[in-house]
Amino acid sequence: MEAHLSFGGRRALVTGAGKGIGRAVAVALSRAGARVTALSRTAADLESLARECPGIETLCVDLADWETVEAAVGAAGPFQLLVNNAAVAELQPFLEVTRSALQRSLDVNFGAVLHVSQIVARQMIAQGVPGAIVNVSSQASKRALKDHAVYCSTKSALDMLSKVMAMELGPHKIRVNTVNPTVVMTDMGRINWSDPQKSAAMINRIPLGKFAEVDDVVNSILFLLSDKSAMTTGSSLMIDGGFLVS
């Protein structure tokens, strides 16, 4: 995908860029010509990313800290591309959901996306340039999963937030879409789904018979950021191997 898409001259912000999908997106965008700012709350992850891909600028900040984010992202911009990838997954049975897990999940999975998008979209509008935002959601936004009451709910809220953003930002030539992956084989994904019994139960519900690889998600995000999807906004791109049709 990278070879066919060029983001030369564009500035991109990727949140949750220390590991997994976010890190891979940051690297792919950089290699496709974008000037990338990678945001994470983990300094060590950003340091290793900067060594791997020296052209990437880094921003170490906790997205739950509203004031710090406002200052840091405001100073780092303006951007024309934004990938809201940062998320937390605090899995608890419904009857055992804690206030702290709920608050942290709302702050990062929903509140931070709204806030970072506000800051970046205002910059886009002030510059008078078109922009593209991709929010990383999940198949969990569309289907109830055991022990995922908070995660499913925050991702469902994120899908609707993205649609309203698309509606209100469209007149400013800013497109907003989500990608909704199934389980992705990041390092964390491999750990969480290493139990053959647990993974078999999920894979049996996926018509393509496998989990997603990181590149499957990266390629879809790059497509939605690119001019090749110039007429697509307010959409959710399922990267679920058919999970939702089964």
Rank of each mutant, 00 (worst) to 15 (best):
I206D: 06
P93V: 07
I125P: 02
N84A: 14
F243A: 12
L145G: 11
R175M: 13
P207Q: 07
V108L: 11
E213V: 00
L29E: 09
G131D: 13
V150A: 03
R23N: 08
R31I: 04
A44M: 06
R31Y: 01
A149R: 05
F243N: 10
Q118W: 07
A140T: 05
V69A: 08
Q197T: 15
E47Q: 15
A230V: 07
L29Y: 03
K210D: 09
T186R: 04
Q118T: 10
E90I: 00
V97M: 00
M202Q: 12
S138L: 06
L13C: 06
R143G: 09
I239L: 13
G242D: 06
V150L: 06
R10C: 08
M231H: 08
N84P: 05
G20W: 00
G189H: 01
Q118P: 02
V36L: 13
M238P: 10
S199C: 10
T37K: 10
I191N: 12
K19M: 13
S141D: 01
A71K: 15
V61E: 09
N180A: 13
A87G: 14
A34K: 01
D62H: 15
A28L: 06
H115T: 06
L91P: 09
S40V: 00
S30N: 12
H172A: 15
M231D: 03
W66P: 01
G74P: 07
L222I: 05
W193S: 05
G74E: 01
E90V: 00
A32K: 01
M124Y: 05
Q103I: 11
M188Y: 02
G170F: 04
T186K: 02
W66N: 02
V179F: 08
T98G: 12
D107Y: 00
L237T: 00
N84Y: 01
L82K: 01
G16P: 10
A76Q: 11
N85Q: 11
N135P: 05
F243L: 15
F243I: 13
M1W: 03
N109I: 00
S137F: 06
M165S: 08
A126R: 09
I56T: 01
G234M: 11
C60F: 08
I203S: 02
S40M: 03
R205K: 14
R31N: 12
L81C: 12
L81A: 07
R104L: 09
S30R: 04
P54N: 05
V217G: 01
V108E: 02
R104H: 06
H4Y: 09
T233L: 12
C152T: 04
M160D: 07
D240A: 10
V73W: 09
I203N: 01
Q80M: 04
G18Q: 12
S194D: 15
L237V: 04
K155S: 05
V179Q: 10
T233W: 08
G22C: 02
T233N: 11
Q197I: 14
A12L: 14
L145S: 14
